[in-house]
Structure formats: C-alpha cells, structure tokens
C-alpha cells in the first residue's frame, strides 16, 4: 500500500474498531427484547398475590387454593396434630430447617415456625408440592398422619416436614399474612 495509508494507521484503525464495537452494542441491545419477552408478563406478575377467605375452614378441614399456578394447602389442624408435631424432636427430622419464607432462612423446623405463629398454631399454610420431584402429596395419610406422596413414597408429618422417603426438604411455606382473622393474603 502507498505511503498515504501508512501515514495514519491509528485513525483508521480507531474508526474500524469503534464501528465494530457500535455494531456489537447495537446487536446486543436488539437481542434484549427477544429474551425479555420470555419473562413472566404483566398479567402473570399482577396475579402474584391472592386473598383467601378461610372462615369456612373448620378444625380438621383443609382448603386447597391456587397461587402462581401451584396448589397451596391451608389446613386447620386438630389439637392432636399440633401436639404430635410439637412433640417431635428436631433431631428426628430429616430436614431441620423451617423452609418458611416469612422467617429467616435458617429458622429451625419447630412446629411454631412451621405454623402461622403464636396464637395461630392450628393454621398450617404451605405449598402442596413434594420437594422431591414436584408431585402433589395426599393429605391425612402416611405413617406420620400428615402427607404421603404417591409418586415416590415420601412421607411428611402433620407440620409438613419430611420424615422418610427420597424428598430432601420440608414442604415450602409461601410468603403470606393474615389481613384479618378470616382472610389471608398469599404472596
């Protein structure tokens, strides 16, 4: 090439590099909407919390509601169930963590931390999905009088804690709060 070209290589290289970078930035920005559209949309996000009337759930009764497409078990436990759960030593548990989204992540899996808290111990509200592979366990069944998952035989006690079988964790407690004595808001 001629001397004309070698006289200003830096300026030319700068132009080429800058244009290439601008093109890369443009292409990356264009890619974003294509990824963005896969995230949950506005209607899905808006449905992220539900309010449930629990006044009709009497002692020993259960209610299943849907929250984010998952079943939520709301159980008004009998005193016997509460006592059974309370009398289980933490050391007997396979998973000693409460798995309660409303508490600290290392809260122990005591019955009070699994339930709706002091004064509302009879209420157990949890995501009704077996922590093994996502099946829905059957209520009031299994060795411990709690839940039994028919898929692979995981057994949960009356506080929804895993006691035997392949599931690794206690059933999850979703974020919720009592907006009144008869209404809870999940999510």
């Amino acid at each position: 090439m001629s001397a004309h070209d070698t006289a200003e290589p830096t300026r030319r290289d700068f132009l080429y590099i800058a244009t290439g970078m601008a093109g890369a930035v443009g292409a990356a920005s264009l890619a974003w909407p294509f990824i963005d559209q896969m995230r949950p949309d506005a209607s899905t996000l808006a449905a992220a919390s539900v309010e449930v009337d629990i006044s009709s759930v009497t002692e020993g009764m259960s209610l299943t509601v849907k929250w984010r497409g998952k079943p939520i078990f709301i159980r008004n436990r009998t005193p016997k169930e509460v006592d059974d759960a309370k009398n289980t030593a933490l050391s007997a548990l396979k998973d000693p963590i409460a798995r309660n989204a409303n508490l600290a992540s290392d809260a122990p899996a005591t019955d009070i931390d699994r339930s709706a808290g002091a004064g509302k111990e009879k209420w157990l509200i949890m995501v009704g999905i077996c922590t093994h592979l996502g099946c829905i366990p059957l209520g009031e069944s299994g060795e411990y009088g709690g839940w039994f998952c028919p898929c692979h035989g995981s057994t949960y006690d009356t506080a929804g804690r895993i006691r035997s079988g392949p599931a690794p964790e206690n059933m999850a407690i979703p974020p919720y709060q009592f907006v009144s004595d008869t209404h809870i808001k999940i999510g």
Binding site: S2, R12, L15, T19, A22, G26, S29
Partner: peptide
C-alpha cells in the same frame, strides 16, 4: 439516535474502504 450515528460511522468506513 443510535442508528443515525452508526450509519455515519459505517459511511466513513465505507469511504475509507473504497477510497482508492
């Protein structure tokens, strides 16, 4: 804004490439 600036840059590159 991006497209106009980018078009300007590519135009300059094009002129350089075709200059001789």
């Amino acid at each position: 804004i991006f497209l106009i600036l980018f078009a300007g840059m590519v135009y300059l590159v094009k002129r350089r490439v075709w200059a001789n």
